[in-house]
Design a protein around this nucleic acid. Sequence first.
RNA 1: GGAGAGGUGACCGAGUGGUCGAAGGUGCAUGAUUGGAAAUCAUGUGUACCUGCAAGGGUACCGAGGGUUCGAAUCCCUCCCUCUCCGCCA
Length: 432
Amino acid sequence: MLDLRHVVDHLDEVKSALGRRNAAAAAALDSLDELARRRREAIAASESRAAQRNKANEEMARLPKGSPEFLARRDELKQLSAEQKEFEKTVTTVEAEIQQILQGVPNMPLASVPDGAGAEDNVEVKVWGQRPSFDFAPRPHWELGAGLQILDFDRAAKLSGARFSVLFGAGARLERALIQFMLDLHTGEHGYTEVQTPFLVRGTALFGTGNLPKFEQDLFKIQGDAPDMLQAMYLIPTAEVPVTNLHGGELLEAEKLPVAYAAYTPCFRSEAGSAGRDVRGMIRQHQFDKVELVRLTTAEAAEEQHELLTRHAEVVLERLGLHYRRMLLCAGDMGFSSQKTYDLEVWLPSENQFREISSCSWFGDFQSRRADLRFRPEPKAKPRFLHTINGSALAVGRTLIAILEQYQRADGSVAIPEALRPYMGGIEAIKV
RNA sequence: GGAGAGGUGACCGAGUGGUCGAAGGUGCAUGAUUGGAAAUCAUGUGUACCUGCAAGGGUACCGAGGGUUCGAAUCCCUCCCUCUCCGCCA
């Protein structure tokens, strides 16, 4: 969430930054100036009466109860108190309106983020590795998986419907091996602390990361009698949600920063609005596994930390020998809460194109303001909001797909990347 | 699921309608003492918002939200969370 004061004081600047995402984002701010003024007036009116009332209360405490002076004074104060409550109600109402607007406003793209409306305007930053060449027609992962009897969509459909998959044998082990490999790399070499979180969270956590209230339709909600969205339970769409909120409401000490967590979780997404997209294979599922990296840091260190985290995600692809590229997302293609995002895209031979396998974002203090993530720069200093950074490292299902496709052989078998073999019982390939 | 007990500042803990932003302690900071440290003593030590050039002034916050009252940490209601016992259970 953007800071009200900053928005009002720099309205034109904020509007032009948001305008780079889309016109609607900027237009939402139009009424804020006036609302902020009404808020200030109501606060002044309410507080001046509260001050009078508090002053009179000292006198009331001294007057004998039931005395004529006491009764007369009490009647006067009734009026004052009623007025104060009226103005306080106005404050509450106006602030709710302001919140409503601000909650729906996305983060501002940084100046270094390129202009653009969609994926076609993203900028390629780097390409790593060689495009694998085949002396046969490379097969899509679902054909490879079916041939090897490790990947089954029909049986998953019997259990859960469309957009689920079942892994068997070496396929299931490959999934598990990837999770282990990624966690070991990040905790062992990149300095992250592994964390296991709940997969079911209350709405307040989803508000913290910016998924609620605007994107409820993307989530799986648990049926229950919660009175509102924020108290309801949801399946997490990413580990970003529980991990980012882990220190909500706390005041972290500066020397503990940066905080760096690596978490494996399954992720659940309703994929509302994506009907017809990626319906074949396991590119887009209602449930998938992901290893997520989260860093909490200071504003000053954040840019460097974002580069570092992105680099950590890239190392996974490089150790696995997977051809990929890094994209800098344009303003129009970034997620709601992000101010700068790199996507890593892995090469899929069957599609003859790169596909997203990781998204590494720097949120500034946008999430921290919602999730109440603060630190104290030094012992006596005022608390400040942290900067949050996170990224997939990596989406496990898509990594499995990339391995199947990039390491496939003419006979339908799939070689196991060197780095993964210790996790696969030493086998060098998956064969029938 | 049943019964009960609780949620107070960085932490522990007192406080059942007024002078309570909140006793006391711990921790922390500064100073004194010391060759240095420990111990001791003194002083200080929350956050957010409004207002002001500033110094300052004001308001709110005792799990969250409502209510009663001139006045609520204290009384009432709803919710959330923690703990204990019983039941059930991986």
